[in-house]
């Protein structure tokens, strides 16, 4: 449940880099902790953000979690489907349940992101 081609944060976000375009979402572990997702608050497109800025939140009926940006840059696109189908995060957190795309100012090293192996170890330590 930890795809090897993604990068991860300690707040349980994942990032997929495609050149400078970074797609992000929350990990399998994060959605499992929250339970059935009922609402997703997404950032406004074109917003400029620093790494680890709070950019939105994910709610279930009994819990809520802030979402932090894994990278610095500018938000280029948000996943509008989540407005009416928040359950996509439970069903497909790494594909259909992505949260937003960011034009990133740097790569995984710039922002100290973990690779899959490191994240797996981090989860075990938790």
């Amino acid at each position: 449940m930890i795809p090897s081609d993604l990068w991860y944060t300690k707040e349980h976000e994942w990032v997929r880099f495609d050149g400078q375009s970074a797609t992000m979402g929350i990990t399998h572990h994060a959605q499992e902790q929250l339970g059935e997702i009922t609402f997703v608050e997404l950032p406004a497109p074109a917003r400029r953000i620093k790494a680890m800025d709070p950019i939105g939140s994910v709610e279930s009926s009994k819990a809520a979690s802030e979402v932090y940006s894994p990278v610095a840059g500018e938000i280029t696109e948000v996943n509008g489907r989540l407005e009416s189908e928040p359950e996509l995060i439970n069903q497909s957190c790494y594909q259909d349940g992505w949260l937003c795309k960011i034009q990133a100012q740097g790569g995984p090293e710039t922002f100290g992101l973990m690779n899959a192996g490191q994240y797996e170890q981090y989860l075990q330590e938790q």
Partner: peptide, 11 residues
Amino acid sequence: VGRLDETAAAR
């Protein structure tokens, strides 16, 4: 009533 669907209530 039995256990209620709180997820549906929030969605």
